[in-house]
């Protein structure tokens, strides 16, 4: 156990206290760490080249040599699942980063500006929010052409309105605070106010939301790949692997099973962490 200064964040006692208080959050953190390690050290962890084909050894069942079996062109599924973490985690983080940055900026601006600007922005968001999100993302991805990058863009665009609403709500609340009012009175530029006062204070709920959103983003991205609108071969991507594995479902159960499990565990990790963070940061639901 890591022991740093007593009472510090990395103090062993404090860590243990958190784990006991919220074991699920600890599990989530552990899952995320595992996935991140896979992402960073994929070439060292994976026993085989994820793209090396071997037509003679196709659809082999799990064995010591190939723990998750092999796919329809004889690639090692274990290595592909390990490498697949890069696509999924990368796209999850990117989607949330993009939609959070753009969305919160618009939202904070809208809330602060108030009046007609606010109304117009919010009506536009209402319209965007009444689109069925997955279908919208699918249509966008189809229009842009299938690639992991375009899938990421499509999902990020669809997620923006949620952050606009969230940040605007925060901004509206904070606008009435004395220090913001004071800043307005002293003639500070609106953007400056957003930067200096509103965003930092609205951060807690946004962090919670974005952690939960990474899980959702990973799921949505894998869904797009499953439908064939995401990752391109030979990139190892979990949703695409489940999609191809689907035709071998009844005879080669391992093919779709392991990549899907990887999605579940990764998205689950972020959702557990997000849930835990919300409990920590939201005083209302904090334990009595």
């Amino acid at each position: 156990m890591i022991s740093v200064r007593k009472g510090g964040l990395l103090d062993g006692g404090y860590l243990w206290y958190q784990v006991r208080r919220s074991p699920l959050m600890a599990v989530g953190t552990l899952l995320i760490l595992t996935v991140l390690i896979c992402t960073a050290f994929a070439p060292w962890i994976a026993p085989h080249d994820p793209n090396a084909i071997n037509l003679v050894n196709r659809l082999a069942p799990p064995s010591f040599e190939h723990p998750f079996g092999t796919d329809e062109v004889g690639r090692d599924l274990f290595s592909r699942v390990i490498y697949g973490s890069r696509a999924s985690v990368g796209i999850g983080l990117a989607i949330v980063a993009i939609s959070m940055t753009i969305g919160s900026a618009i939202g904070a601006f809208s809330g602060l500006a108030g009046g007609r600007t606010d109304t117009v922005i919010m009506r536009v968001m209402d319209v965007l929010l009444s689109f069925p999100p997955l279908v919208m993302a699918m249509a966008l991805a189809a229009a842009l052409g299938p690639s992991l990058f375009n899938a990421m863009l499509a999902i990020a665009v669809v997620r923006i309105p949620f952050y606009v609403r969230l940040a605007r709500g925060q901004a509206l609340g904070l606008r009435e605070r004395p220090y913001v009012r004071a800043a307005v009175t002293f003639g500070a530029r609106p953007l400056g106010i957003v930067q200096r006062h509103i965003l930092p204070n609205a951060l807690a709920p946004i962090i919670v939301q974005s952690t939960l959103d990474i899980g959702l983003a990973i799921l949505t991205a894998s869904a797009l790949s499953f439908i064939g609108l995401g990752a391109q071969q030979p990139t190892a991507e979990w949703g695409a692997m489940v999609s191809t594995g689907r035709q071998f479902l009844l005879d080669q159960w391992w093919y779709p099973t392991f990549p899907g499990l990887a999605i579940l565990l990764t998205a689950g990790g972020f959702n557990l962490l997000g849930d835990g963070l919300r409990d920590l940061l939201d005083p209302k639901t904090r334990a009595r």
Binding site: I53, L55, V73, Q232, Q233, P234, T244
Partner: peptide, 22 residues
């Protein structure tokens, strides 16, 4: 798709990169 992956592997041997576009 498997044909493409084979083409990709075969052409890599002679120094041509193949980008799969589905």
């Amino acid at each position: 798709e498997p044909i493409g992956l084979t083409v990709q592997a075969n052409l890599a041997q002679i120094g041509l990169n193949v980008e799969m576009q589905q």
